[in-house]
């Protein structure tokens, strides 16, 4: 039908361009993702592995509880134009001491 006609995809002029366009348009096609190469796995082994993963594997890195003064966060955001989260992180890394944090941020990192 005429409708199908004008939905024909790439109109790149050369065979060369058509090839490239076709390859790129397929890159984000994830429909086959769930049907990838599956292989028989030993269910018991998997179960054991899974429980191990849920446990010790991904414990949050221990973080010290550091109190941070909101005024200091504001100061760092203002002076360094950092996002709030970054400023907070920087303060925490220096025990909430704004002067120490600012001095550290001034040092070349290379």
């Amino acid at each position: 039908t005429g409708d199908a006609e004008d939905e024909v995809q790439p109109t790149a002029k050369s065979a060369e361009d058509r090839k490239a366009a076709a390859a790129l348009s397929k890159l984000d096609d994830t429909r086959g993702d769930d049907e990838g190469a599956t292989r028989e796995v030993d269910q018991e082994a998997v179960k054991n592995a899974m429980s191990a993963l849920g446990g010790g594997g991904d414990k949050k890195k221990e973080t010290k509880v550091v109190k941070v003064d909101a005024a200091d966060v504001k100061l760092l955001v203002e002076e360094f134009e950092l996002p709030k989260a970054k400023a907070t992180e920087l303060l925490k890394a220096h025990d909430g001491d704004a002067v120490k944090a600012m001095k550290a941020y001034l040092q070349p990192t290379f």
């Binding site: 599956t38 028989e40 796995v41 993963l53």
Partner: peptide, 9 residues
């Protein structure tokens, strides 16, 4: 992974 362990990827 937990929902599809049979997939290597």
């Amino acid at each position: 992974l937990k929902s599809r362990p049979q997939l290597r990827q």
